[in-house]
Nucleic acid binder design. Structure first.
Lengths: 339, 339
DNA sequence: CCTGGCACTCGGCCGCAGTGAGTGCCAAGT
DNA sequence: ACTTGGCACTCACTGCGGCCGAGTGCCAGG
């Protein structure tokens, strides 16, 4: 009961602060959210909430603002789901369905997400290791040079130039192509390393060195490269959140260019199957300590293809943002799962 | 003589302002650049320069700062070339030569350029139309679905999913592959449309509809898509230039996300063969009126593969930036031309 | 446990004068 | 015809003091 009202007060503070970006005081609170109690009572609750570390005051005799911990509680226990409107869902769908290829899907998604949430959006390209091989192509480029192109069922194309120690011709290329396809087509990439390992031994002796370098290349492009590709959009939205500019904006932008860091942040949400939120220091990135990351995985079933999410100020409309991220992820997942 | 000194004064103003970002006054000028004349004389010159529109004062009784026109004159007539140091050249080379594929080259270039110039760097992916076809691959994905992959000699891979009206199988795919390769391999893409146009007529009748859709796809991926791809890095550097933040930073970031606009800006420098500079309103982009764009083409000979450049505040070290852009473009051009 | 009352705090917002870099103009010097 | 020193003037910037008011903490009474 008492506990309940305190939480209600916290919710009210978060909601008001998200809207106004100004410390919220007891009086305004009591008025705007008909809590049925007087400002004085609210003050007591606020005092308690501050004691417990959910809110803080920027300076004495100012209103309160939520802390990381406060937002966390809000997200975990207080925020309902804010379902998207019919129109919004349709907008997402129609925006995405014009896409012509994988690149286009990713780029559209990221722009869509940025526009929708008015924050910085990040979308990971479908991860190689959770898709499977559809076709491998080997082309000769020169007497000792080949190009391997691997096409996955998500439409991603991985290429690799290979310098062979021994001369190669069209015939050998054809043979390599056949061997590789036979072994790998349909395999999930995560399983490929084992499959590929035994290949050279089974092949004709004169093919072996060549096949060995080739399988080496395949393996190499399977190792999740530290910087798997990702797309980003909406950095301009950072200026909207008037986080104490001078300082942070700069370092936030820098952090966002660190693909490795971002990758970890977005990628980690990939397996969970739900929308995850990291608030402030929970991001484990110092430059992002004033921001929050809302991310999720996309793609069919248990094997998420990749992650996507948004980075914004802690002061964000979590219920709505989470709903938006989830919705976009769902559509993108369907889109990529289907074809 | 008199004219000469005035120009010298302009140069001094530009140089000082670039360093200090503060309006420069007559006294400081006369001292720091031993011009051999008194501040009063400098004032007269400044007055004249202002009259002609090369400099302006932010407010009465402040020093002068260069105008767009002033920078323009500086770039055109006053700035020598500031050659890069040996170490810098080596750094560029070693930074780039580790690249493993096209994507990597582009990404490395753009980061390099951003770090080097400490500004926002933009690199266009090699344009399709100025490269030539190395190989075309056709893969069946389903009973009526194929994937066409086109590999160019710059290492770029273009893919396209094609829905056929008639059923297709491996055999047909093979035939299509052979036909297309035979006709197109080695052709410059710019020439491809004509070559491709007559193909369906020459083919076996039952292949025709299929081949027609296929060539349609080829043509479609040739049309320079409005948003050819480009890579960007160093947006954090925008915060360095303390352009009157609140306003412009935002709109600059927005403009930079407009691929089409950027493309035009960077791409237009592609054919000129030299480093071009667009200052302020010369960019024809309102949001970039406080910035300058230094760009050039890269790639062998008369057919530039693409453009690259940097976007920074008008207040930039033009000689150095131009040298850096040129140097990086040269190395990248060699790198892509060679393989 | 809630409530109204009350004193207190402190950031933000004037208005104000002082400072100094920088200008324009002018009359005198070369 | 230029250059120069002198001089008055402008005006952004800074620091100071005072006021205001939103917001707090505390307390005594319901």
């Amino acid at each position: 009961m008492l506990e309940d009202r305190r939480l209600e007060v916290l919710r009210a503070i978060v909601e008001d602060f998200v809207l106004s970006n100004e410390p919220v005081g007891s009086k305004a609170l009591a008025e705007r959210h008909n809590l049925g109690v007087s400002p004085a009572t609210v003050r007591n609750d606020m005092s308690a909430l501050e004691e417990e570390g959910y809110i803080t005051q920027p300076h004495t005799s100012a209103g309160r603002i939520p802390t990381d911990k406060g937002y966390r509680l809000f997200v975990d226990r207080l925020s309902g789901v804010k379902p998207l409107s019919r129109a919004e869902r349709r907008a997402i769908q129609s925006f995405l369905e014009g896409a012509v290829d994988l690149d286009d899907v990713v780029r559209r998604s990221v722009r869509l997400l940025a526009q929708l949430t008015r924050q910085v959006a990040v979308v990971q390209y479908p991860s190689l290791s959770s898709s499977s091989v559809r076709h491998i192509e080997v082309v000769t480029l020169g007497p000792r040079r080949m190009l391997m192109v691997m096409i996955t069922d998500t439409g991603r194309v991985e290429q690799r130039i290979i310098d062979s120690l021994t001369p190669v011709d069209e015939e050998i290329a054809g043979e390599l192509r056949a061997t590789l396809n036979c072994a790998l087509a349909g395999q999930r990439l995560a399983d490929a390393p084992e499959v590929v390992a035994t290949l050279p031994d089974q092949a004709r002796p004169e093919l072996r060195p060549c096949l060995a370098t080739m399988t080496g290349a395949v393996l190499e492009s399977l190792v999740e490269r530290p910087e798997e590709r990702l797309a980003m959009a909406g950095t301009a939205n950072l200026t909207r959140a008037s986080v104490d500019f001078a300082d942070s904006l700069r370092s936030i932008l820098e952090a966002l260019e660190e693909q490795v860091v971002l990758m970890k942040l977005i990628g980690s949400a990939r397996e969970t199957g739900t929308v995850t939120v990291r608030i402030g220091r929970e991001t484990d990135v110092d430059a992002l300590r004033t921001t929050a990351v809302v991310a999720t995985g996309y793609g069919r079933g248990p094997f998420a293809l990749g992650g996507m999410g948004v980075v914004g100020p802690m002061r964000m409309d979590y219920p709505w943002t989470m709903a938006a991220v989830r919705a976009v992820a769902k559509y993108v997942g369907e889109l990529l799962g289907a074809d």
